[in-house]
Simulated scan of single mutants.
Amino acid sequence: MMLPFLVGTLVSLACIGLHALVTVVAVSIARSAGLRHTARPRSHLMGVMMATAVVLMVAHVLEVLVWAATYSIVGAAAAEDGLLYFAFVNYTTLGYGDITPVREWRLIGPLTAMNGVLLFGWSAAVLFEVLRKTLDHLEAAKAPRSASG
């Protein structure tokens, strides 16, 4: 029981690190894009939000690939059942149950789900913060500038 917990914890930490890296990149790109002056602020906001969401989705797919590779390495389930699919079902907490892990690796599914829930929440927070900051900038750009200088 300890080996699956240890492996799941290490993979979770790796995915958290990957998500942190992608978050830093996404926020820096969104910040620079959000600071641009534009004649079409709504379209600009939509573009910033869509780009940020796509970058975060790519991070989630990479994290699912890390989990699928881990499942393959440890033999958590039969490879012919589709380990990538199994990782997606666990990570997104769908829990279809059509593929089940081998008995000694049962704990890895819930650990994957816990990691996915955490990282999806993190992504939602990042998207909200990018939206808030971009809106703040767009509002500041619309405000009349003071004559003092």
Rank of each mutant, 00 (worst) to 15 (best):
M2A: 08
P4F: 00
P4D: 03
V7Q: 00
V7C: 02
G8E: 07
L10E: 02
L10F: 07
V11F: 04
L13T: 07
A14H: 07
C15F: 07
I16A: 14
G17D: 06
A20W: 11
A20R: 13
T23F: 11
T23Y: 12
A26I: 09
V27P: 02
V27C: 11
I29S: 05
A30F: 09
A30D: 11
R31K: 13
R31T: 14
R31F: 09
R31Y: 06
S32N: 08
S32C: 03
A33H: 09
A33E: 12
G34S: 13
G34T: 07
G34E: 10
L35I: 01
R40T: 15
S43L: 14
M46R: 15
M46H: 10
M46S: 09
M49Q: 14
M49T: 02
T52L: 11
T52M: 12
A53T: 09
A53E: 09
A53R: 08
V54K: 07
V55D: 03
V55P: 03
V55M: 15
L56K: 08
L56R: 13
M57G: 12
V58L: 15
V58R: 05
V58E: 06
H60A: 13
H60N: 14
E63K: 02
V66D: 06
A68H: 05
A68E: 04
Y71R: 00
Y71M: 12
Y71V: 02
Y71S: 04
Y71P: 01
S72T: 03
S72H: 08
V74W: 07
G75C: 04
G75T: 06
G75Q: 05
A77Q: 05
A78Y: 03
A78N: 13
A79G: 00
A79T: 11
A79N: 05
G82Y: 00
G82L: 03
L83C: 05
L84G: 06
Y85R: 10
Y85T: 06
Y85S: 06
Y85L: 06
Y85C: 01
F86H: 09
A87E: 07
A87M: 04
F88M: 15
V89R: 00
N90S: 14
N90H: 07
N90L: 04
Y91L: 04
T93K: 06
T93D: 11
L94C: 04
G95V: 07
Y96I: 14
Y96W: 13
Y96V: 15
G97V: 02
D98L: 08
I99P: 08
T100G: 00
P101L: 09
V102K: 05
V102Q: 04
R103C: 00
R103W: 00
E104I: 00
W105P: 02
R106N: 01
R106K: 11
R106A: 06
L107I: 01
G109L: 05
L111C: 05
T112K: 03
N115Y: 01
L118G: 00
L118P: 01
L118Y: 07
L118D: 05
F120C: 10
W122N: 14
A124S: 15
A125G: 12
A125W: 13
A125E: 08
A125N: 07
V126M: 14
F128W: 15
E129P: 00
R132N: 13
K133P: 02
T134H: 07
D136V: 08
D136T: 11
D136L: 08
H137C: 09
L138M: 12
K142S: 15
A143F: 05
P144V: 13
P144T: 12
R145E: 14
R145P: 00
R145L: 14
A147W: 10
A147Y: 10
S148W: 09
G149S: 11
G149K: 05
